[in-house]
Write a protein that binds this DNA or RNA. Structure first.
Lengths: 359, 359
DNA sequence: TCATCTGGTCATGAAATCTAACCAAAAGAA
DNA sequence: TTCTTTTGGTTAGATTTCATGACCAGATGA
């Protein structure tokens, strides 16, 4: 019997990046990481941290090996059916309509806290960015996404009604970070928007304001409707008070609407703004039009981002504890993953009121 | 026994040839392939099939690790006991002076990208928040912290000179996210602050501004000095231009300084603000004092946070790619962990200029 | 004395890789 | 329908890594 001596001095192997990429892809394919079809090239580049030419070289090699089929202008298909023993065990998939950098800073903090907690418990999180899952007819996109990347639990961020309905209908394990639409019994963690709205309304009335504007986006996310209801209820308690709801499509549209309101004869003296980023727009625009804050116009922000501290004057707002938000979601994720039935529990966190100088 | 979960899609590891060579040499050394002394460099090159610069980099690294001794003009000697205290724990420890929610949003995004990338390569990150490590005499705090929580690599965020010196002195594996102080050779990833400053200066001069203010914090972090130097150099090229550097202690102090400047007879017509949060303060205060932007005063922000898009007018600024920033750091972390400060390399990323409406 | 070996250093060029575009077709949303 | 987004396909230029080959000065030994 011949024994092979272990070579004591082995020269470095010089595996090119393309080959390494092929190996990574093969391993994932063998593990059944994707079903049917591959993700787009650009997305793969991101996750593999590799440039597109490199990735394409690897993909083409796999095609030549017959493990993938190329289809012009549509996604590549997986040929060999892999032993689909994909351990979807401890994986949470986040679905967001935009990449992190487009989300509000507080949302990023929340996600970070969430990942941290889940990571400590041995979970991995995976973020999916897909615009088409948030449209009015998200069925196809959701079908494909959930089929392609199995996860123990799905976490919906800034989700809209059709999406939530889809998840409920397919009874996939999921939970909502933010507001769950009315009548849809998905477990969720949310800020207490109704209570916040009521508090803000009462505050402005107490300060003597009677002509009040609520500023909201025309997309219905983030519990805007609830805020509006809470705020309206508070304002309605004072018969002499008028409430105008300003619903804008874009930043520029908001500016236009503000100018219209400013031109009106009986001016509005208070603004309750739902999105903190738009508070910036409102405040800077009011200042630009020579309105004094808070003398000519009071401003209250429903969301409490950090940067509002640096506005002069400091913005009065309601701040949520992102750390806690993330922790609660992390807990709920684990509960949902363990229990078979969806427990439609809703956790509401009350934001902290931060008295600023804009009221 | 602890088992690590197998990650389904691991990005290629990009082991550089130098690192591969180090591994080959280590293996041979451990196997006792040579006695007392090493072969000559040229011979080793042949057997390892590697060029001399590459081999030498590997040898020097082994010297630094104390496994070989360098002898000028005679062969290298092998240190008897290969200590092999390679802290292969895949843990990165971040040190920050403040919790995430107090950091600039872009920094949070960067950290998130970093965690994501490292996580997929099987690393865990741990965040430490300690003010006392960022003081002028951080020795005790750092001693305690590093002793308490071992990590393969330390990542310093918004770090200051004494801290960096301490790490260099104790030759712990670390790298700097942000600016590495002058003369301290730690590997770092940073924005190209000097170039940005020069660009901004040239821009303002081209627009006809001659009395220009640079707004900076009195803490020296985030490459503020570099920005000042680059900006000054650009302004100095125009003899008729005046540059005032406004260094503030706090938000309120900044407001006071702004008011002083506004009262001066020959007004300053342009502001270059280093921190994006303070851009908010500057802009809102200028608006409050009825200055029109950009007619009375132009504002340029060195940092490019997203929320500046929502200011009216949209702020002209320089934005770094946080995703890329995090990726570069992630890569550097892995390099540093494998070799001890192999290459005290500084990576400079050029931010993208975003033309706004404030110039 | 002289050829040869040693580690140290440098300039140059080739290859691998990344970045950032642009294109046209297909798919999907409104 | 019309418009936007996404898809794979392609290219040019910059950057980084590594190899090649040369030179130097001291050490070594014939």
């Amino acid at each position: 019997m011949k024994t092979f001596p272990v070579l004591p001095l082995v020269p470095p192997q010089r595996v090119s990046l393309v080959v390494q990429t092929i190996q990574s892809l093969r391993a994932a394919l063998a593990a059944g990481y994707w079903r049917e079809t591959m993700p787009g090239e650009r997305e793969l580049c991101q996750t593999l941290e590799v440039s597109r030419p490199t990735l394409r070289a690897a993909l083409i090699e796999l095609q030549r090996a017959g493990e993938l089929t190329s289809a012009a202008r549509s996604r590549r298909c997986i040929v060999a059916k892999a032993a689909s023993i994909h351990p979807s065990g401890r994986t949470v998939a986040l679905i967001s309509p935009m990449p992190l950098r487009r989300l509000a800073p507080n949302m990023v903090l929340m996600i970070d806290a969430l990942r941290d907690h889940l990571g400590r418990s041995g979970w991995t999180t995976h973020m999916h960015v897909s615009r088409s899952c948030f449209t009015r007819h998200p069925d196809r996109a959701l079908q494909e996404l959930t089929a392609r990347s199995p996860a123990a639990t799905w976490l919906l961020i800034t989700s809209v009604r059709p999406m939530q309905e889809w998840f409920l209908r397919h009874s996939l394990r999921c939970l909502v970070a933010g507001t769950c639409s009315e009548g849809i019994g998905l477990p969720s963690v949310d800020a207490a928007h109704h209570a916040t709205g009521r508090h803000a309304g009462a505050l402005l009335l107490r300060k003597g304001h009677r002509r009040i504007t609520l500023v909201r986006s025309d997309e219905n996310t983030g519990g805007d409707n609830e805020s509006v209801r809470g705020f309206s209820a508070a304002i309605a308690s004072e018969p002499s008070a008028t409430l105008q709801v300003m619903s804008y499509r874009s930043r520029d549209h908001l500016v236009t609407l503000l100018d219209q309101t400013l031109r009106s004869d009986a001016p509005f003296t208070a603004y309750f703004v739902l999105r903190s980023l738009d508070v910036l727009t409102v405040i800077t625009h009011l200042l630009r039009r020579n309105r004094h804050i808070p003398r000519d116009a009071a401003v209250v922000s429903r969301d409490g981002e950090n940067f509002l501290d640096h506005v002069s004057p400091v913005v009065t707002r309601y701040a949520i504890d992102t750390e806690r938000f993330g922790r609660e979601i992390s807990r709920l994720v684990r509960t949902v993953a363990e229990t078979r039935t969806l427990n439609p529990r809703t956790i509401r966190l009350m934001p902290k009121f931060i008295a600023g100088e804009t009221v």
